[in-house]
Computed example of a mutant assay.
Amino acid sequence: MKLVYVFDAYCGWSYGFAPTLAEIGRRHPDLPVEVVSGGLFTGARRVPIREFGYVQGANAKISEMTGVEFGAAYERLIADGSFVMDSEAAARGMAALRQAAPAHRAAELAEALQTAFYRDGQSLSDAGTYRAIAERAGLDADAVVAAFTAPTSRAAAEADFRHARGLRVEGFPTLLAVDGNRGAAVLAVGRATADRIDQRLAALAAS
Rank of each mutant, 00 (worst) to 15 (best):
F7D: 07
F7P: 01
G12V: 06
F17A: 15
A18P: 06
P29Y: 08
V33D: 08
E34I: 04
G39Y: 07
F41L: 10
R50P: 09
R50K: 10
G53V: 15
Y54P: 07
S63L: 06
T66N: 14
E69Q: 15
F70W: 05
G71F: 08
E75G: 03
R76C: 07
S82D: 14
V84K: 14
M85E: 14
A89F: 02
A91I: 08
A95K: 01
A103Q: 05
E108A: 09
L113H: 07
Q114Y: 06
T115V: 09
S123G: 07
S125H: 03
T129W: 01
T129C: 02
R131G: 01
A141S: 06
A143L: 03
V145W: 03
T149A: 06
T149M: 03
T152V: 10
T152W: 02
S153G: 07
S153H: 05
S153V: 01
A155D: 12
A155F: 03
A155S: 09
A157S: 08
R168K: 15
E170R: 15
P173E: 12
A177R: 11
A177V: 12
A184Y: 03
A184E: 12
V186K: 09
V189C: 07
R191Y: 13
R196Y: 08
L204I: 15
S207I: 04
